[in-house]
Design a protein around this nucleic acid. Structure first.
Lengths: 192, 192
DNA sequence: CTTGCCTATGCAACGAGTTGCATAGAGGAT
DNA sequence: ATCCTCTATGCAACTCGTTGCATAGGCAAG
């Protein structure tokens, strides 16, 4: 399990509350590690009782109090140890791939519409990534000499951009294939 | 949850036992949907009691008996209904991206070695995919006029190939970035 | 002849992830 | 006035996924 480690990295990059972490897991970190606020609160509590993070209650005007978390030395050691462990193969779960193969046993028309919608989502995500890259790394507002943290954030973002571009190209391929199959079926060649 | 649906698709492509399914989830299907044999047996049992699949006990010589599963009409309906549901955004969990961002707070040397190993795994996977494509779809042994099922299997495989190529290129980028940071640190510019 | 691997299925316990709900004050919209 | 949204935290119940272990016959290598 690595949610703890994702939280440690995020808190090292910038300390904050559970709520703030949950927001980040909706945005930047969420693009490669999803987590709900429930998970985050639960894990933060455990990490606190294990001494990995330190808490400080912060009063705010007009808003509820919050618990400000930062990484304690034992947490840093835990993260360091984890970083030295071998990288495990990712366990993937691609709904879409299952649906595509399932389309052999169903009318593909509906799937075509869904793939088009899916393509649009990825297209928007790519635009979003590129805007973020411009803003934080390559634009005129970006730091001239980025530090290690920023360089590493950038290379992860470049990975996201490459992934979205690859996905969009593949989805074109998928759509072409689905159209071909539908046309063949309409021609009275139900080849399954 | 979609393991049921992945199993239904796999059984429609070719009926078989839980063990055989588990093998497939180590190979072709496993490249986009991971599952252990425990999960498969448990879900198959539930699917059987829900009438989604039919079982037939098969005696074998020299091997234990097996339970041969095939999709029953209700299972087909369930799959069809699921195929018409909108595609949900995938919930990703990329250890590697977390580790890369974590490298800002640690010595990157170890991570470099791990990324190189990881790169090799993906390189081997790409080779394996390409061999499978040659064997089943583009080589001389492949069917001249593939049916819908084969065309869809092929387009999913092309997705896997595109993914591996993209990943390998990105890992080069990651390695270059890690080397740059290590060099900067060695020069006495610990920029974090 | 014993150790280990392959086929084949399964239980039990645990840990991780999801979903629904609850609280509670501040601010804006209708 | 009332409803909705945002900040901020949390419980409880449930499902899903993982890990370790168990059985059991056949086969091959040492």
């Amino acid at each position: 399990m690595a949610l703890e480690h994702a939280i440690l990295v995020s808190l090292l990059e910038k300390p904050g509350s559970g709520y703030e972490l949950a927001r980040r897991f909706d945005r930047s970190i969420g693009y490669f590690w999803t987590a709900t606020h429930q998970q985050i609160y639960r894990v933060l509590k455990r990490m606190e009782s294990d001494g990995w993070v330190e808490v400080r209650e912060v009063s705010q005007q007009g808003k509820p109090d919050k618990k400000h978390y930062s990484v304690a030395p034992p947490g840093r050691s835990v993260l360091s140890a984890w970083l030295h462990e071998p990288i495990e193969p990712e366990s993937v779960r691609h709904d879409l791939a299952v649906k595509i193969r399932g389309a052999a046993f169903d009318d593909p028309s509906d799937l075509i519409r869904q793939v088009e919608r899916y393509q649009q989502i990825h297209s928007e995500r790519l635009t979003h990534y590129l805007a973020g890259e411009q803003r934080d790394f390559t634009g005129p507002e970006a730091p001239a000499e980025p530090d290690a943290m920023q360089e590493l954030q950038h290379v992860v973002l470049r990975g996201g951009i490459a992934y979205e571009r690859m996905t969009l190209a593949w989805l074109d391929d998928v759509l072409a294939t689905l159209h071909r199959i539908r046309a063949a079926r309409a021609d009275g060649r139900p080849d399954c």
